[in-house]
């Protein structure tokens, strides 16, 4: 059981949870993720670690309510617990002094890019942060991002805040303006990461994306998270999650991520109809039969 000690709603349907996980906090490096399972009958889902505090022994994750599990996590409050949290998984981001780097966060991807942006800044890079959302109220972590960047641009699809447009519009502006860019990190929805790759391909700007395929064990055992990179199968959990954007086959990723769409819809409908009851049962500990588990810490 991993105790939630703090929650904050960053935007409607987007929540930040601080979880007690001392071992993970101690070893977390920027770019890594955890796999969580909320309750006994729950699925395993990967979530990027937004931040960690080794001294306090905590990690934070930012979760947007889209499917059953993420909706469930969004209902949890301080004092509740998550049954399983395992990590830190995946290779850490490559951190070095590259020069000028652009860190792009689309939607909840801003949270996922945060710790890498912070590490890049600390390594002496000139960090240009571009964060985007559909509208003003969905912009998250603006101040936090400002704190770890030299320039910050906010983009909204409807122009209700910052500049009107998507994050890649601003990236294209930077490139067109003749600025020297040594590295681009793009984290967000697949179409956004693909657009970033397209924007930098001809310029030959090294571009990294953090991929989010369906994953189960997260340790290289199942192969469910395989992605096509430069025509080769790679496992996002052990070979990634970050890859060279120019070599990623985004179509295959999009397709594979849609594989369980019908089942996800069904699970979500069921969740909405039994939501209160399920949460009650999780809180009461009734579902925690812990068939073979040994109790992590």
């Amino acid at each position: 059981m991993f105790k939630i000690i703090e929650t904050r709603e960053l935007a409607p349907g987007i929540k930040r949870l601080v979880i007690e996980a001392s071992r993970i906090a101690r070893r977390h490096q920027a770019g890594q993720f955890v796999i969580i399972r909320v309750y006994e009958q729950g699925e395993r889902i990967p979530l990027t670690i937004e931040n960690s505090d080794a001294q306090r022994g905590t990690i934070s994750i930012v979760v947007q309510a889209v499917g059953k599990t993420t909706r469930l996590v969004n209902v949890l409050e301080a004092g509740d617990a998550i049954l399983d949290v395992v990590g830190p998984l995946g290779k850490p981001s490559e951190i070095a002094k590259f020069g000028t780097v652009v860190v792009m966060g689309g939607g909840v991807g801003t949270a996922e890019a945060f710790s890498t942006a912070a590490a890049l800044k600390k390594a002496g890079n000139h960090v240009i942060a571009i964060i985007g959302a559909r509208s003003r109220q969905l912009v998250i972590l603006e101040e936090e991002m400002r704190g770890v960047s030299d320039e910050l641009y906010v983009m909204t699809d409807d122009g209700s805040y910052g500049e009107k447009g998507v994050v890649t519009d601003k990236l294209r502006d930077c490139i067109a303006g003749g600025r020297r860019i040594d590295l681009v990190l793009a984290v967000g929805p697949i179409p956004m990461m693909k657009a970033a790759a397209d924007a930098t391909r001809n310029e030959g700007i090294r571009t990294i994306v953090s991929l989010n395929p369906i994953m189960i064990d997260g340790t290289g055992m199942c192969g469910g998270c395989r992605v096509l990179v430069n025509g080769e199968s790679k496992f996002a959990c052990v070979d990634g999650p970050e890859f060279d954007a120019h070599q990623v086959n985004f179509e295959v990723l999009t397709q594979r991520n849609s594989m369980y769409r019908d089942e996800e819809k069904k699970a979500m409908e069921e969740f909405e109809s039994e939501r209160e009851e399920l949460i009650e049962r999780i809180r009461s500990g009734e579902m925690r039969e812990c068939v073979l588990a040994g109790g992590g810490k």
């Binding site: 009958q41 055992m221 089942e263 996800e264």
Partner: peptide, 22 residues
């Protein structure tokens, strides 16, 4: 096979939707 069996055995996908993993 590892993924197929993990979904079924570890995650009990054959009991979907009682278990969440499909």
């Amino acid at each position: 096979a590892n993924e197929f069996l993990t979904r079924i055995n570890l995650m009990r996908a054959y009991e979907f939707p009682r278990y969440d993993q499909p």
